[in-house]
């Protein structure tokens, strides 16, 4: 039996639009994953605490507020501090290409723009996440 993937979908920052995050959460569930959804207005500390307690394989951030250049690195830094550096950090939102490049150099995974078919996200997680021990 293969291990179930557990993914945290989080919505940091001040903007109140979580439609995108919910659509992704449902798509991942429909692909057989267990999705921990924590709701709006999460701080990086809240996100990483939840990721740690839930022992997730990956963390997906939905960021539309424009604060991605502070939020992603902050979450990344805290994940490393908590020993979660081997977990996938990915995201979605409207983020300029050069910023994406900068973030990926820091170890952030793929960032999906608006209009990405959800299947692309599902495939990416399946390809990227370690599925080591059962």
């Amino acid at each position: 039996m293969s291990r179930k993937l557990r993914i945290l979908i989080a919505k940091p920052g001040l903007d109140g639009h979580d439609r995108g995050a919910k659509v992704v959460a449902r798509a991942l569930r429909d692909a057989g994953m267990e999705v921990i959804y924590t709701g709006l207005h999460q701080t990086p500390q809240m996100i990483v605490e939840a990721a740690l307690q839930e022992d997730v394989d990956g963390v997906g951030l939905s960021i539309l507020s424009g604060a991605h250049m502070t939020l992603f690195p902050e979450v990344m830094k805290r994940m490393c501090e908590e020993g979660l550096e081997d977990r996938l950090l990915f995201g979605g939102g409207i983020i300029p290409g050069e910023d994406v490049e900068t973030l990926q150099k820091q170890g952030v995974g793929k960032i999906f723009g608006p209009g990405t078919p959800v299947q692309a996200i599902v495939d990416y997680i399946h390809e990227t996440v370690r599925v080591g021990d059962v």
Binding site: D30, E34, M46, E54
Partner: peptide, 26 residues
């Protein structure tokens, strides 16, 4: 049908996330 799940109980518990005296597992 899909074997997947959305674990959403945490949505109502966010005031507890950063308290080291509270551990939540879904």
């Amino acid at each position: 049908y899909t074997g997947g799940a959305i674990l959403g109980d945490r949505i109502r518990m966010s005031s507890l996330f950063c308290d080291p005296g509270v551990f939540i597992r879904s």
